[in-house]
Write a protein that binds this DNA or RNA. Structure first.
Lengths: 236, 236
DNA sequence: TCGTCGGGCGAACACCGTTCGTTGCTCGAA
DNA sequence: TTCGAGCAACGAACGGTGTTCGCCCGACGA
């Protein structure tokens, strides 16, 4: 069966002012979906669909979904600005970087679910690690302490954002707004804590308000403060 | 079409010395699969299959998979022994509890992927929280500090085990033994770090050995030590 | 003895990541 | 200019996932 040539009076199929498929385009679209609807909405099929093609086409530019997510993470972490070490400020700059990571990651919802899986090895992640390490060394921490502290601080920031992203995903999935979600989930939880027998759970019962209070930001700050105070004790 | 009565000379279908389906049985089987093959192998279909039934049958005893995983987590966390507060030991008991959690969770592979998603509210998890809170209060921490420190320490232990479980899952998925995995994954990574231009990444280049050394246990201990030292500064 | 209630469960739904094999375009060599 | 090779694009399918629908049937209360 010969293909019939296109009649000259029909313009060629113009469904394609679209850029040709490329890795950047895929990453960009994936990040867009992630920002708009969360990680669960990011599927190969969905990205392909938004690009006007089928899922198989993506695999020419990306090895698999895991690699794609790593590329998206690299893009996001690249937004974190890394200051040069100012030795006289000691570990204060660490607090600054941690907050920047926190904010950038929060801005891109649940991308934080990705990097815990594997040691980041993209150039942007390396630049960030280099900056943090340099600050700690300049502040007078022994090399082995600085190296492990880098690992622990990285884990702390990622895990906090990760936890927050799971909370946000639940909120999104529930379809309710924040206050309705709070009323329906946290209120019963608080009531449950209040209903606990005081003799079995004296510490919890006596401190429910302290346990329930505090936003995500406040808790992050508190944990960061503990970490920095503890790290301070290792300075020579 | 009438059902033909069973001929009396055939014993009734004896594929069923099995206990009737129950929530405990489902949880038990799920935990068994999790221990043997990891979280990824735990699916509703797989549990049902091992119980000799179909996936739909499970939903009479368990609301959904999320609830099932929470029940499994409850079972595991129940293995952690909680000591009574000994005020003269200060925060030392916290170190002990953290290690117990660490060991119990590690013993059950990647169950740690579950609890980060939601505030634990089962009786066993509550008992653990009560114990940790009581110790911190007895050690002289202000209530608000103790409450948030409970949250942060819990997050630290869970996130460390979680990270470890992802590593273990990768190892398992690769099908290789630990040393082969190390050679094929970590060695190239080390080589990559070594190949970095020293002028762009001076801190990393000069400290590769410090960065690569240290087992999971050593890193966990180091982070725990930082946390406890930092928390110590809040004692009145 | 009859009726109803509820666990058990086969089948199906709507997804998922990934692979296979074909199509058809582009570009360099002859 | 023509041919051929290589490769991006992609339709279709594979083997999985969690969950729901609706029927069957046995036990138990009236």
């Amino acid at each position: 069966m010969e293909a019939v040539p296109l009649p000259p009076w029909r313009t060629p199929p113009k469904h394609a002012p679209r850029r040709p498929l490329s890795q950047e385009l895929i990453v960009e679209k994936g990040l867009g979906i992630l920002d708009a609807e969360g990680l669960d909405a990011v599927s190969m099929r969905r990205i392909a669909q938004e690009l006007g093609t089928g899922p198989a086409s993506l695999y020419a530019h990306v090895a698999n979904k895991e690699e794609l997510l790593e590329l998206i993470f690299e893009q996001v972490i690249g937004e974190v600005e890394v200051p040069a070490p100012e030795p006289e400020r000691g570990l204060d700059q660490l607090r600054e970087i941690a907050w920047r990571m926190y904010r950038v990651l929060h801005a891109h919802a649940d991308i934080a679910r990705v990097p815990m899986a594997n040691i980041p090895r993209g150039p942007n992640a390396l630049r960030l690690a280099e900056g943090m390490l340099a600050i700690m060394l300049a502040a007078g921490l022994p090399p082995q302490v600085a190296a492990w502290a880098l690992d622990r601080l990285y884990l702390y920031v990622m895990s906090d954002v990760y936890e927050g992203s799971l909370y946000a995903a639940k909120l999104r999935a529930s379809g309710k707004d924040q206050s309705a979600f709070f009323e329906e989930i946290l209120r019963p939880l608080q009531a449950y804590y209040l209903s606990l027998p005081g003799e079995s759970f004296p510490a919890i019962s006596a401190n429910i308000d302290s346990l329930m209070t505090g936003s995500g930001d406040e808790r992050f700050e508190f944990g960061l403060e503990i970490f920095l105070r503890g790290l301070e004790t290792y300075r020579s």
